[in-house]
Design a protein around this nucleic acid. Structure first.
Lengths: 320, 320
DNA sequence: TTCGGCCATTAGATTTTCTAATAGCCCGGT
DNA sequence: ACCGGGCTATTAGAAAATCTAATGGCCGAA
C-alpha cells in the first residue's frame, strides 16, 4: 500500500490546478525542481503517469485527474478534521476572510455580525466588499476563504454551492412614477431608462436575457458598478435599476426609493459560495454562513409580508 | 490551516487503535519516543489535546476520537486514490490476502477463482482458510486484507459490511433417515444427535439460541471444528449437522449426504466482510468481492430451484 | 521499598527535503 | 538557420526533519 507523504500530494494538487510545475512552485513557495521531484516520486510510487508533459506546461492524464480529485477530497477531510478537533475542544479561533458584494453588505451583513461577533469573539474577521470578478479572483489567489457571488459555471480550482436564490426588484425614485410595492410586469412598462451593472457582471447577462426574452423595451441604458451612486442617481432622476430584494429590504415604506417586485414572470438571482478547491470551509466559516442564510431567509419573510398577493388578471404596469 | 504530515497522522491513528504509544510504535515499526513526538507535534499544531495520558496507556479525548475518525476517512480516501489511479491507468496489480471459512472454500471459492484469475492475472492471491476467530485476528494484525466471517458486533480497529445472508440446512447421512430436500421443522424431529461448531464460533451461539427458542430437542451434541471430518462422520452415522446452504450446494441430489432446508421458521446465517479500519479495500479486493457475491447469489438460485415449494399445512418432519 | 510499564524529553545520527545550477527540449520570432 | 524564452528533468550539496538511543519521571502492583 502506497505511503505517499502529504507534501507530495499537495504538490500534485497544485500542479493540477496551476497547469504547470513552475506556477505550482510559486504557489507552494517551493522551487520548480522541488515540485518536479515530488510529482516524479508520486508517479514512481504509484507506477502511474499522472501528467503528460508538454512544452507549454503539463496536462493531467485521466488517471491523474482521478487521483487529483480523490486527493483534494482527502485533504479537505484532513482540514475538516483539524477544524472539528478544535471545535470539539471548545474553541473557534482563527481568521475568517470573506468576500461580499454590495448586494449583501448593505442590508444582510450588519445583522449577521450583530449575532456572529459575540458568539465567536476569538475569530478575526476580514471582510472585503467588491464585485464578483474581483472577489472570485481573490478566492482563487487564496486571499479570501470564501466569497458570495452570482452563480456561474465554475472554474478549475474553485468549488461552489448554492447559497441564496433571491427575487429581483425594480428600484426607482418618485419621479419615475411607480406605485410602491406593486408587482410590475416589465413588458408593459413604458420604455425604461435603466442603470445596469458592467459587462463583467453575471447579473448583467441575466438581465439582458430577461429583457430580450420578455419584450422589455429599454429607452436608455447606463452602466454603473457603484452601488451608492446608483441608488443616489435613481432617487433623484426618472431612471430605474434592478437589484436583489435583500439589498433593498430597508427601503420598504421609505419615501426616497420605490421598490416594486418584478412579476409575470418573476426574475431571480442566484448566488453561490465559492472557495478554493483545495480548502474545506473552517468551522467559523460554516458558522458565519449558517447565520448568513438565516438572515437572508428572514429578509425573504419580511418581503413576503410586504408584497400584496397578486391574483391572475390583477397585474398591471403600476404607473398606467 | 494546519499542515500536518501524513506520518504524524498515521501515528495518531495507530495510537488510537492500539491504546498505547508503545504498542503503536511496534505496529508502525517505530520507537515509542518517535510516536510520542509525532503525537505531541499534532497536538501542538492543532492546539488541541488528543489523548489523556495514564499510567496504563492513553485514552483518546472526545476531540481525539473525532480527529481519529476523520483521519481514518482521509487516509482511506488516499488509499482509494492510489488504487483508482492504478485502475484508471489500466492495471490491477498487487497482493490480495483473503480469509475464508470452510463454509465458503468448499463450494463458493473455486467458481469465483475460475473467473477472477484470468481477469486479474497480475494480482497475487493469498487465501487463508480458517475459522472466524482466527481470521478476524489475522485481519486485526494486518495479515489479511479482509475476511468473510459470521456477522458480529464489531470491534475497534475493524470495520465490516454485510456480504451474505444464507439459509441454514440440516445435513445428514442415509442412516439418519431424512427425505432429501424436504423442508424440516426441527421441533418436530425426534431428538437429534448433532455436530456443532466450538463455543468460539458465533454460529454456535445462534444455533443454540434457535434450539432453545423453538423447542428443538437435542439427544446428544458433539463439538467439531473440522469441516471435512464433520461431513465424513455425518455421512457414515445417524448424526446430523447444520450448515449454510452455500457449503452444500454440491451435495444436492448426491446419495451420500442428505440436505434438508430448515423451515418454520427458517434459520439464516449472516456473514460480513471485515477489514482494518485504517484500510480501504483495494481495487482487486472489490473486484473479488463483487464476483464472490455474484457466485453466492447464483448458488441461492440453484437452491431455490431445488427446494420444493412449501404450502401451509403441508410441512412435516420428513422421516415420520 | 522495589520493580515493571508507561510516557516525556534530549542529543545526536540518519534520512529526507529543498534549492541552486545546469541540461535538454520545444516553439515562436527574427 | 539561429536565438531567446519558457518549460521540465536531473544532479549535487546544504538545510531541515525524522528517527533512535538513552534517560528521567510517574504510577501501580507486589
Amino acid at each position: 500500500m502506497a505511503n505517499i507523504p502529504l507534501r507530495q500530494i499537495r504538490a500534485v494538487i497544485a500542479v493540477c490546478e496551476e497547469g504547470s510545475f513552475t506556477r505550482a512552485a510559486q504557489r507552494e513557495n517551493a522551487t520548480q525542481s522541488g515540485i518536479s521531484q515530488h510529482v516524479a516520486a508520486v508517479e514512481r510510487t504509484l507506477k502511474v503517469k499522472l501528467f503528460e508533459r508538454t512544452t507549454g506546461g503539463i496536462t493531467p492524464t485521466p488517471a491523474g485527474l482521478r487521483y487529483y480529485k480523490r486527493c483534494v477530497e482527502a485533504v479537505g477531510t484532513l482540514e475538516h478534521a483539524a477544524e472539528e478537533a478544535r471545535s470539539f475542544a471548545g474553541e473557534v479561533t482563527g481568521d475568517l476572510r470573506i468576500g461580499l458584494m454590495p448586494t449583501f453588505t448593505r442590508a444582510v451583513l450588519a445583522p449577521v455580525l450583530d449575532d456572529f461577533v459575540p458568539r465567536c469573539p476569538e475569530v478575526r474577521l476580514h471582510i472585503v466588499e467588491g464585485y464578483s470578478a474581483l472577489l472570485t479572483e481573490m478566492v482563487l489567489d487564496d486571499l479570501l476563504d470564501f466569497a458570495v457571488v452570482p452563480a456561474f459555471e465554475g472554474t478549475i480550482g474553485l468549488k461552489s454551492r448554492m447559497l441564496v436564490r433571491d427575487r429581483e426588484m425594480m428600484i426607482s425614485g418618485p419621479r419615475a412614477g411607480f406605485t410602491p410595492l406593486a408587482p410590475l410586469r416589465l413588458a408593459e412598462c413604458p420604455p425604461l431608462k435603466i442603470v445596469v451593472p458592467g459587462p463583467d457582471n453575471i447579473r448583467r447577462r441575466n438581465l439582458e436575457t430577461y429583457f430580450q426574452a420578455h419584450g422589455v423595451e429599454i429607452a436608455a441604458m447606463l452602466e454603473m458598478d457603484a452601488m451608492i451612486a446608483t441608488l443616489e442617481f435613481v432617487a433623484r432622476s426618472n431612471w430605474v435599476t434592478i437589484l436583489p430584494s435583500v439589498i433593498s429590504v430597508n427601503d420598504i415604506g421609505r419615501g426616497e426609493l420605490i421598490v416594486n417586485p418584478i412579476a409575470d414572470p418573476e426574475l431571480h438571482a442566484e448566488f453561490v459560495v465559492v472557495q478554493p478547491t483545495r480548502r474545506t470551509l473552517s468551522t467559523q466559516a460554516r458558522l458565519f454562513l449558517q447565520r448568513f442564510e438565516a438572515e437572508v431567509a428572514h429578509i425573504h419573510q419580511v418581503w413576503n409580508r410586504a408584497i400584496a398577493p397578486v391574483r391572475p388578471g390583477n397585474l398591471r404596469a403600476a404607473n398606467s
